[in-house]
Computed example of a mutant assay.
Amino acid sequence: MTKNFFLLLSLLTGLYCTAQTKKPLPVIDMHLHAIGADDQGPPPLKMGVPFDNFGYHDPKNEYGSTFMEALKTGKWAKHSTSSPLTDDSLQVQTLRVLRSNNVYAVTSGDMSIVRKWHTQEPKRIMKGVYWDFRSVKKNGLTVDSLRKLFRSGEFAIFGEVAIQYEGISPSDTAFDPYLKMAEELDIPVGIHVGPGPPGVIYLGAQKYRASLHSALVLENALVKHPKLRLYAMHAGWPMIDDMLAALYAHPQLYVDLGVICYHIPEKEFYFYLERLVNAGFGKRIMFGSDNMVWPQTIKIGIDRIKNATFLSEEQKRDILFNNATRFLRLTPEQIKAMY
């Protein structure tokens, strides 16, 4: 009996250790940033997870001070997470979260930092190009240079495209050559359609307009480039009716849940997500964290999906993984390697 007891104990211990070391099911984050620790302001900064409210502001004062005070003190949120102090710690913490949660991330931002992170974690960092019209002057990211970059295979996703901050619609004729290039090369495109920081117009983005939250700004671009793989980052929050109309009219259009999955009030996020799913678009919703300098938000965003009681297990896996594998056209071999 003693021998059988120790045999059983050994078996149970082995099963326990296997359970402890088994990787979580894979997640694809369609919206991660590789940037400097001070990119959003002098660290440490507190991100509400979520913000309980977005405060109030007396216009006799300068809004930048109001907003920075909220980020420094966390006064708009009961729960917040603080940003790391250095570039190295931001990298280490972000990559640690990716590994521990088995996350593979479409990553854009400072191209030198994207390359550095990819060197450290080549399997989990899928390199994207952060782009706006300022990038043409600052980094020489013209149509021709982008075409060469994508043809080289080093970068695989055109996004985040952040021209909303410049007050420019994705259907503007000035942006059309870039969409034509992406369509020709079959490069997925992720476009910022939704919220920036609250009050961002008064934080320096003077041409940003809330009207460009509407997913309907994508219509002419989609019609003109019907073979384009395009996803609306932030799912056009809060303009749910426009987002539903765009998804219904354009069956090739996908969305990601970047930032709204952790920073807006949870009740509002679940309301928005449930509307998307109830309307029949659960197969075109992809997880995105839009993590900037708060690595813990990746896990918090994933948990928001996992804890959504109105979602079936199949719907959760679609949002966290399956829909992105289809959109990115990953091969069975690539998908298998992620498990």
Rank of each mutant, 00 (worst) to 15 (best):
P170F: 11
F54S: 01
I335A: 01
Y231K: 00
S100T: 15
Y339K: 14
K299M: 02
E266A: 03
M286V: 06
V259D: 05
G282R: 07
V217L: 01
S80C: 06
T2W: 11
D87C: 09
K138C: 00
F67Q: 03
K299I: 02
T21I: 14
K46D: 00
S83T: 15
A77E: 05
Y178W: 09
Q315W: 06
C17G: 00
A205W: 12
L45H: 08
R96E: 14
P59Q: 08
Q252H: 11
E313K: 12
E166R: 03
S80N: 12
D39E: 10
R209N: 13
A174I: 15
A232D: 04
M181D: 09
H263L: 02
C17D: 00
I187A: 07
N322E: 09
L273R: 04
S65C: 00
Q93N: 13
T21N: 11
S312F: 08
D318W: 10
A156T: 15
F281P: 04
D241S: 15
Y231L: 12
G204C: 03
M47C: 09
Y56K: 11
H33G: 13
Y63S: 05
I305G: 05
K299S: 15
F327A: 02
M181V: 11
G204E: 03
F281L: 02
L45N: 05
A279Y: 10
V200A: 07
N291F: 09
H79W: 00
S145L: 01
A210R: 14
V129R: 12
D87M: 07
F155R: 05
L85Q: 15
K336N: 10
L25I: 04
T66A: 07
P195D: 01
V27H: 11
K46Y: 05
H33Q: 14
A232F: 07
E154I: 06
P238K: 08
T107P: 14
I335P: 01
M30Q: 12
L273E: 10
L85D: 13
N101T: 09
W131G: 09
Q93G: 01
Y165M: 06
P42W: 00
T325N: 08
D132W: 01
H57W: 15
L98Y: 14
A19F: 13
G55V: 05
E266C: 00
T309M: 04
Y165R: 10
E121I: 02
D87K: 14
P188A: 08
S100G: 00
E313H: 07
W131I: 07
H250D: 04
T297M: 06
A174H: 04
I168Q: 05
A215I: 09
L216I: 09
G48I: 03
Y339E: 14
D242T: 09
F51L: 07
I335Q: 08
G280A: 10
Y165I: 00
F287A: 06
V161I: 15
P295D: 10
